[in-house]
């Protein structure tokens, strides 16, 4: 069933702050096999001009996707999450995420489309630090595939 267009533009309350830890960044970098010292060695990160170790460019998705759960699990929206696949993903960084950041995410539904029975949902996640400064924006396109025979 097509999603309700009136949800376009709806924003959800900011999430509780997520504190980015050095060891979490290390764990993520190791999981993608990336040995760049900027992720694990504070001195190497400082030599590049960063205040502490930084996170890989896609790390923030672990935070924004959790925040997008507010949207995809909104019972009023009624998205069938069991049929959802990730369509597109984009990040625009004002600065890299770094250890010590306390980040909040504000999710907004940017667009809802229906195409060949698929529901397509565009969610924007604005990520701010403790000082209220913008750090990164994540755009996530989710596609809920049409049920077979529908």
């Amino acid at each position: 069933m097509a999603l309700d267009q009136s949800f376009v533009g709806r924003s959800y309350p900011p999430t509780e702050p997520y504190e980015v830890g050095r060891e979490k960044i290390r764990e993520f970098a190791e999981a993608v096999g990336d040995t760049n010292p900027a992720y694990t060695d504070p001195e190497a990160a400082k030599a590049l001009g960063h205040a502490d170790v930084i996170a890989p460019p896609t790390f923030v998705f672990t935070i924004t996707f959790k925040a997008a759960g507010q949207v995809v699990q909104d019972p009023q929206l009624g998205l069938d999450y069991s049929r959802v696949v990730h369509g597109d993903q984009k990040f625009v960084h004002r600065r890299p995420v770094r250890a010590g950041d306390r980040l909040t995410v504000t999710s907004t539904i940017e667009a809802i489309k229906s195409l060949a029975g698929n529901d397509i949902l565009d969610i924007r996640g604005e990520v701010h630090d403790e000082a209220g400064e913008h750090v990164v924006t994540a755009w996530t396109k989710l596609v809920s595939r049409a049920a077979e025979g529908a």
Binding site: N36, A38, Y39, L48, G49, H50, I54, P56, P57, T58, V85, H86, G87, D88, Q89, K90, F91, V92, H93, R95, P96, W139
Partner: peptide, 11 residues
């Protein structure tokens, strides 16, 4: 890695 200002893909 901090030099990456934008990054987007389609799956």
């Amino acid at each position: 890695p901090g030099a990456v200002v934008e990054y987007g893909v389609r799956f």
